[in-house]
Computed example of a mutant assay.
Amino acid sequence: MTDEHRGGGSRRRVLAGALTGAAALVVLGVAALNRGDGAPAGPASRAGSTSAATPAASAGRTAAASAEPTGSPVPTWEGPTPPPIDPKLSKGSDRAPVTIVEFGDFDCPNCRHYAQTIAPALKREYLDRGVIRIFWRDSPIRGRDSVRAAVAGRAAARQGRFWEFHDAMFAGRPRLDDEGLRAAATRAGLDVARFDADRLDPALKRLVDADLNFALQLGLPGTPAFLINGRLLFGAQPLATFKRAIEKAR
């Protein structure tokens, strides 16, 4: 089977999942921000937030009919359990009132467009001012090269330089073979020998697969997809659309 067929099969699974998962997306802040891997809880865990990490919601389950009495402050959730997020794949203040989870693919042109044109503006206006915290989840739906690049990102995270690698990957259109990934690693300031060794660790592939399976279970229709305090914003929308969503979430 060709890589194109593999990528097409993944995309078909995403679109099929969208039919069953789309209704759940508006309340998935908890699912996207499971903090079981040591990520500190910020204001998003306060009562009343759609992304509140309460004990009842910490498994990341989507909203369903609650068996609790009317007026209970703690909702009941049902749905896919999220894998933990590596805190090295996040940036911003843990006290930020708005959390943005990006499901991305290093081989996605629209993800590149977002990284080059929208993310810098959000950084200046919101991230640097402590308004948003950003989390990355891998959603490599375009085939084997996407998965290889996602694993490389996890290897960069082991050196504490995920975001530098992320920016190097999206700065241009790097090749996603070993040579291209090493070039991005060099630009990101990584120890390339260690980077190459870590990419062979099957544990990193399992982390990538867990994120991808989670995205498929949520029924996300493609990449990039964002959960802004748990509410879905799909695609590299205009900057004004992101700003409206962030202001509403505040």
Rank of each mutant, 00 (worst) to 15 (best):
D105N: 09
T117Y: 05
G104H: 05
V74Q: 13
N110L: 11
P109C: 08
S90R: 14
S58R: 15
P120G: 00
P120T: 00
G104V: 05
P87T: 11
P83W: 12
T70R: 14
P73E: 02
S72N: 13
T62Q: 04
Y114V: 05
A65P: 08
Y114H: 12
V74Y: 09
C111M: 13
W77T: 03
E125P: 00
K91S: 04
C108Y: 12
K123P: 00
T70W: 11
I118Y: 05
T81K: 15
G79Y: 06
R61E: 01
T70P: 07
R112C: 01
K123T: 10
I100N: 06
E125N: 05
P97D: 07
A56F: 12
S66Y: 01
A115Q: 10
A64M: 08
A115C: 01
D86E: 08
G60R: 13
W77K: 05
H113E: 06
S58G: 01
R112Y: 04
C108M: 13
C111G: 06
C111N: 08
G71W: 09
V101R: 00
A64V: 11
A115S: 13
R124H: 09
T70L: 14
A96C: 14
D107F: 02
A67R: 14
T99Q: 14
A56L: 14
F103C: 02
T99P: 02
T76E: 01
I100D: 01
P82S: 13
N110G: 03
I118W: 08
C108V: 10
A65E: 07
G104A: 15
T70Y: 09
F103G: 01
G79C: 07
H113N: 10
L127M: 07
A57V: 07
C111P: 11
